[in-house]
Amino acid sequence: MKIAARFYIAAILAFLYLPILVMMAMGFNESPLYELPFSFSTRWYQALAGNAPLVNSGINSIWIAVATSIIATVLGTMASVALSRRTFRGKTLLQLMLLPPIAIPWLITGTAMLVFFFYSGIGRGLHALLIGHVALAIPYVVLVVGTGFQTVRADLEEAAMSLGSTPVHAFFSITLPLLYPSILGAALFAFAVSLDQFVISYFLATPGFSTLPVQIYSAIRKGFTPEINAISTILLVGSMAVIVIFALFAKPGGVSDKR
């Protein structure tokens, strides 16, 4: 029974990883038509360097992810302070308002942004992408930082105030250092959400300004070339690295007060 179960888990893992590994391997195959047998080559990675649209969109993706991460982390942490540490009416409603960006299919959110941005004069392109990505990342930040708040006792700030700290000083000297792992985790999470975001970007990108997933999509639609495999591999490895770092930092109670 146990052996069958382990075999089954192995099969599931194979199902999950094999296609990805095949795709990665094909990026190192000499043949432009994915012909086998395999012959190792880095020519597609070298070709990437000369593919200006892909390289530019990759750079765009990283910049947008960095900006999204910073903005969403700052705003989301602020909101999380209020939602975790203050009492006020309508809090439940505000918490529920974090759900639509997560739960509504991105196709609908994305097209809604397209419509509204077009008629409100915001338009498409870099700033529109940034507005959209930050909005998608904020709820995750609020949730991750909010979880972190649960591990930082509220009376620590009171203790600091009783010793002469203003609320602002208490927050920066006590709460923020204790919240640091959660905030860093939230920032990485926001970075990953933005880096991998395709649907919203697809509707808000312009021919002159797009992100890597959008470029990959249009390349796939035109036809497969091993260059796509190469850039996909880079994107995949990049976002996996971010998630692994996230997992290491956002461990609940990593550096927090466990008493």
Binding site: V81, P100, F116, S120, A135
Partner: peptide, 19 residues
Amino acid sequence: LLVPTYGWLTLAVFLPLCT
């Protein structure tokens, strides 16, 4: 503390959905 986040969400999600 709340206005930036909810202002942003309003601009980017709620107003678009209403529109």
